[in-house]
């Protein structure tokens, strides 16, 4: 979600195999420098991709002597996913971050083969994406300050997750501003 000079990214913490809940501390948001990546979908691919992107961004960091920017990273995600066009990773990625040079917030989402979905307000993904669309459409407003953005994204996630049997079991929210990153864990229903 985009706010005024800030972005936020959040995910639930559940990992399950079908109806059985397996873990309530499986984080799906990863950061590579100041760029954040949310990965929903097949847990195996979530882990594999997070490791792959750590590899690629570390190599980028050493080659370029600087951290990767959100826009660049979005294209890296896209090409990495499209490389497996005919045997894709089963994931729904989201990228969020603030460009350290232009200081502009950036968010985008992808389908499983890497088609980028640019947005200026919000991006959703996962089993509760329908519910999240509903929440975001009604709760979101542009140019929110970081604290208000935190409240908005948290409410959107929590209430959407409560209407989805496969989501929830706690949540994590990152609020990203130019020079500060705040990570907060949310308590939620454990059923």
């Amino acid at each position: 979600m985009v706010g005024k000079d800030c972005v936020a990214i959040a995910s639930d913490l559940r990992l399950g195999s079908q109806s059985l809940g397996v873990s309530n501390n499986f984080e799906k948001v990863f950061n590579f420098g100041h760029v954040f990546l949310g990965l929903t979908g097949l847990a195996s691919d979530v882990t594999t991709l997070s490791e792959t992107f750590r590899f690629k961004t570390n190599m980028y960091k050493m080659r370029e002597d600087r951290l990767i920017e959100p826009e660049t990273f979005a294209n890296l995600v896209s090409s990495t996913l499209y490389e497996k066009r005919f045997g894709p990773y089963f994931v729904g990625p989201i990228v969020a971050g603030i460009n350290s040079k232009t200081e502009k917030p950036f968010i985008c989402g992808f389908d499983l083969i890497g088609c980028i979905d640019f947005a200026k307000d919000f991006i959703v993904a996962g089993t509760a994406s329908d519910q999240l669309y509903g929440m975001c459409e009604s709760v979101y407003e542009p140019n929110l300050e970081p604290e208000d953005l935190f409240e908005t994204i948290s409410q959107a996630l929590l209430n959407a997750a409560d209407r989805d049997a496969l989501s929830g079991w706690g949540a994590v929210v990152y609020v990203i501003t130019k020079d500060k990153i705040v990570k907060r864990y949310l308590k939620s229903r454990q059923d």
């Binding site: 490791e51 792959t52 750590r54 590899f55 570390n58 190599m59 050493m62």
Partner: peptide
């Protein structure tokens, strides 16, 4: 060697 280091990191975390 950078590639080797990253491969090791990916394999063993």
């Amino acid at each position: 060697s950078r590639v080797i280091a990253q491969q090791y990191l990916k394999e063993y975390n």
